[in-house]
Design a protein around this nucleic acid. Structure first.
Length: 927
RNA sequence: AGGCGCGUAGCUCAGUUGGUUAGAGCGCUACCUUGACAUGGUAGAGGUCACAGGUUCAAAUCCUGUCGUGCCUACCA
């Protein structure tokens, strides 16, 4: 940003404009000075702790992170300043599949054949990558001011955390929660691993429904017609099912049909099962038990159905297919099979069909239900505990409706497939002897002891990444090695978990269950579920949509060229680049200006209501950068005052007494702001806290108090001026502390200058200064009423001035305190010629406003009497309509009888106000 | 198919247990460079609170239904 105007050096205190880059340097020493460190001494302080949802070690900071981290940091900073003993526990997640993909890609880039590597060699490479590139995201977090206890940063595959995984696995196995079995699981044929049902996303796609005739064994000219979207699986069909009550097919039950295209020929039976929907398709379902979850369920009810696997792990036709199809990819095989069915006259018809196709979350490959040996965790009893903890209120969801989502899922939970056929991750602590017996132990030695002299080989599968994440609440606090350690004692259970609803099941529910099982009790008191950050059109931000925003680009700014490069580089579908470029050019013709971290954080805070989605609008960000500038300039003004900037400003003006009621007002207003902010944080209403801070600073402190203070500084005597200067400083200083948790950098920079001037430099940094607490004794209704009156009078004068802004116009003021008010009208309403006058001397037939026992009159050369009257008339009419409504209510006996006293009072007051206004307006008619 | 949410100013959103004149930011109009700030100031325009019923003295707020919209879960071969 150009800073020409900033080099204007009449001002040595602060540059004329706020510059985020400079302000952000104010926080550069925080971490090194140890301000972020937790101190788990038992010193009587209440604890407040937050677990950072560990971002993927492969990850880059995105808007969702930045948003949630802002909220966590705000709370931690707030509680720290409130005197709590705080810990924000950071760390990263090993991100099984994601990391394996990254490491594989990196090896391929270096021309290394991954398939040829041993497990150990691969892991060595992966760890190398982690050491070199795995701290990107935590560095980015530091840029945003995240005051985590970075000394305690951990990684889910650290030795210590891995020990917790092994311990939990063994205990769960010994307690009968973990078992191994051959089950139908979601298989990703590209990544060659099982995935849990949460990692499968089904979206509607276009397909074809094929109707195929299976000839009767005893009557080959006739047959039964089934409908299928996957004709390639015909080859391993085990039965045909119809509904037991479907009269069309009753006579056919028990009959056998030939499975098409099989060689040697194979026949299957027609059976009855409730699962079949007679209305759908042909009413007959082919049962392919090894490749479909529903069919598998049918198989479990009819164990005679043959269970034949058709595919290799990478979804090619295996040896169970007739020779002509063997080795073909499943989709190629489908085409050939359709052709062959057609040739044999067995394909009755095919029609377009929309259906949901399950795809792997990561690979986007069509998931194949596959019969494999896997490790599972029994979830029924765990889920009961998870539900009970929510019912008992040991874990509290904010907003509350997420409790129902959580309960809904837990009450329909399936067993969890926890094994993955990957290299990167926690290798399952299980060993097998040549007879196929399994030995589960924390170490190989212990397993060997169980096995006697039988040779053992270790299970190669690793655990689902979410298994270790589920232990995060206690593994990071070393409960499993040292239950009595001070960190665990001080910070567990944690105060609040802040995360998105997208991982409510993946992570939150599992943490609750696992922590409860291992440690006992819920790992956190509150779970605050945030919305998901979307773009300004409400679209999810994603690389492929080309609408991603990097939070650091919002803070530091980015040129259009760089932004285009970021958005179009490395796309899955390069043909989208052109559209993305066009959209980006249109939305950001000049790139993105640097809004600064503080403005970005304030934006996030102000967007954090209880909503489910957050449309991110750059306009908000810009507005809050302006707010930073406002704060900056307010401080600049106040510092100049403290530095003697307003000295002698009014040497020739007569002193006006009794001014400082306004000081009491702004102090009173500050207490209310402090209370509102505290209440808002208590409910996680960051938006309301931000709004209150914004309004307090801009509307009350800057727009009113600062302007009033100028009058006091000009017209007041020495003691008034001293008092005003002190109030300006004191309120600013407290306001900076009030604001610090949301905008840490600018407040630090300004506070360092402001605090010493009011003897408030009680700590080396604002982040360790005390958070301002509302004091009821300082709330001053009389001062608030006086200020409300002054505001109303000034606003009335502004309106008059706006309407009669012509040369020679003079504002005349009459009333008991008109003398004192004139300076305010000069300064605040911009009426340079204002003067006090006795009521008797007021000219007649001039635009007049009567307000609060005061008469304001604009004495000016030219008045459009008709226009003025017409406007008064309009206002009058409006007031009278309002009055009529109020009086109707007051005349309603039922209202008077049933309404709360407070409601009646306020209506009566409203009536009085309206009557008075009407009276004042009526007397202002000109002739 | 079930479940959850949303629909308030041109746009993005607040609106606490029903109760003064429904608010904020951005945008828009007019005027103003007044010694903190033009990243500013002043005044203003703009809302039948999606629609239809109902409960109530009183509904943006509570209930029912309709329409629109988003998401989650489960899925029909």
């Amino acid at each position: 940003m150009p800073t020409d105007t900033n080099s204007d050096t009449t001002d040595t205190i602060l540059p004329k404009h706020y510059e985020p880059q400079i302000a952000e340097q104010a926080g550069s020493g925080w971490e090194a000075s140890g301000y972020f460190s937790s101190q788990p001494q038992n010193d009587g302080r209440e604890s407040f702790s937050i677990l950072l949802p560990p971002p993927n070690v492969t990850g880059m900071l995105h808007m969702g992170h930045a948003f949630q981290h802002t909220l966590m940091d705000t709370l931690i900073r707030y509680q720290r300043m409130c005197g709590k003993n705080t810990l924000w526990q950071p760390g990263t997640d090993h991100a099984g599949i994601a990391m394996q993909i990254v490491a594989t890609r990196e090896l391929e880039r270096r021309g290394i054949d991954v398939a040829a590597l041993s497990r150990e060699e691969f892991l060595t490479h992966a760890w190398e990558w982690k050491q070199q590139s795995g701290n990107t995201i935590t560095q980015q977090m530091r840029r945003l001011g995240a005051s985590c206890d970075w000394q305690r940063e951990c990684f889910t595959m650290d030795d210590n955390l891995s020990a917790a995984v092994t311990q939990a696995f063994v205990k769960l196995y010994e307690d009968g929660y973990i078992y191994r079995g051959k089950r139908l699981v979601n298989w990703d044929p590209v990544l060659l691993t099982a995935v849990s049902d949460l990692e499968v996303v089904s979206e509607e796609e276009s397909g074809v429904m094929y109707h195929v005739r299976y000839p009767f064994v005893d009557d080959e000219d006739n047959g039964i017609i089934i409908a299928t979207t996957r004709p390639e699986t015909i080859l391993v069909d085990g039965a045909i099912a119809v509904h037991p009550d479907d009269e069309r097919f009753l006579p056919l039950l028990g009959k056998r049909v030939w499975v098409p295209l099989c060689s040697p020929p194979r026949s299957i039976e027609i059976i009855a099962d409730e699962y079949v929907d007679p209305q759908f398709g042909s009413g007959c379902v082919k049962i392919t038990a090894a490749h479909d979850f529903n069919d598998y369920a049918v198989y479990q009810r009819h164990p005679d159905i043959p269970l034949i696997v058709l595919f290799t792990p990478d979804a090619k036709m295996n040896e169970n297919a007739p020779e002509t199809y063997r080795g073909m990819d499943r989709f190629a095989a489908r085409e050939k099979i359709v052709a062959d069915l057609t040739a044999q006259g067995l394909l009755i018809k095919q029609e377009p069909h929309r259906y949901k196709l399950p795809r792997g979350d990561r690979s986007k490959a069509v998931i194949e239900p596959m019969l494999t040996d896997q490790w599972f965790m029994r979830m029924d009893k765990m889920a009961e505990r998870g539900l009970a903890l929510a019912d008992e209120g040991q874990v509290r969801f904010v907003p509350d409706n997420w409790r129902r989502v959580y309960q809904e899922w837990l009450s329909k939970i399936h067993d969890w497939c926890i094994s993955r056929q990957l290299l990167w991750g926690h290798q399952i602590p299980a060993w097998q002897d040549p007879d196929g017996n399994w030995y589960i132990a924390e170490t190989e030695e212990q397993a060997q002891q169980q096995a006697g002299d039988k040779p053992l080989t270790r299970e190669t599968d690793v655990l689902d990444t979410w298994f270790s994440s589920a232990l995060w609440p206690y593994s990071t606090l070393d409960w499993h090695t040292q239950p009595e350690n001070p960190h665990f004692q001080s910070y567990f259970p944690t105060s609040v978990l802040i995360t998105g609803f997208d991982i409510l099941f993946f992570w939150v529910a599992r943490m609750v269950m696992m922590t409860d099982y291992m440690v006992g009790g819920s790992p956190f008191h509150d779970v605050y579920i945030t919305g998901l950050v979307r773009d300004r059109e409400g679209q999810k931000m994603s690389k492929s949509r080309g609408n991603i925003l990097d939070p650091l680009d919002l803070a530091d700014g980015i040129s259009l060229e760089e932004l285009l490069a970021k958005r179009t580089h490395g796309l899955m579908k390069p043909e989208q680049a052109q559209q993305i470029e066009a959209d980006t050019r249109q939305q950001f013709p000049d790139g993105i200006p640097a809004y600064g971290v503080d403005a970005l954080r304030f934006t996030f805070a102000s967007l954090a209501s209880y909503g489910r989605e957050i449309k991110f609008d750059l306009g908000r960000c810009e507005g809050y950068r302006h707010f930073c500038n406002k704060l900056w300039n307010a401080a600049r003004f106040v510092l100049s005052v403290a530095d003697g900037g307003y000295e002698n400003a009014a040497a020739d003006i007569e002193t006006v007494a009794n001014l400082p009621v306004q000081d009491e007002w702004i102090i009173s207003r500050l207490q209310r702001a402090e209370q509102t902010v505290a209440d808002s944080f208590a409910e996680y209403r960051f938006d309301l806290a931000a709004l209150e801070i914004y309004q307090f600073f801009w509307d009350d402190y800057c727009s009113w108090y600062l302007e009033v203070a100028k009058v006091q500084l000009i017209y007041g005597d020495a003691s008034v001026r001293a008092n005003t200067t002190r109030t300006l400083l004191a309120v600013l200083e407290a306001g900076l502390r009030l604001c610090h948790p949301i905008m840490p950098f600018i407040t630090e920079q300004l506070w360092q200058k402001v605090a010493p001037l009011v003897d408030k430099k009680t700590a080396a940094t604002i982040m360790l200064a005390a958070y301002p607490q509302a004091e009821a004794a300082k709330i001053n209704p009389a001062a608030e009423a006086a200020m409300a009156r002054l505001k109303a009078i000034v606003e009335a004068a502004r309106q008059l001035r706006q309407e009669y802004n012509q040369p020679g116009a003079t504002l005349l003021v009459s009333g008991s305190d008109s003398e004192q008010l004139v300076p305010f009208l000069v300064k605040l309403a911009g009426c340079k010629n204002a003067r006090s006058i006795a009521a008797a001397e007021l000219p007649t037939n001039a635009p007049t406003v009567k307000i609060h026992e005061l008469t304001l009159l604009m004495d000016c050369p030219q008045i459009d009497i008709a226009a003025r009257n017409e406007q008064r008339q309009r206002e009058l009419q409006q007031l009278q309509t309002e009055l009529a409504a109020v009086e109707k209510m007051l005349a309603n006996p039922q209202f008077m009888q049933k309404a709360r006293e407070q409601a009646i009072n306020s209506k009566q007051q409203q009536q009085q106000r309206l009557l008075q206004k009407i009276d004042e307006l009526t007397s202002q008619t000109l002739s």
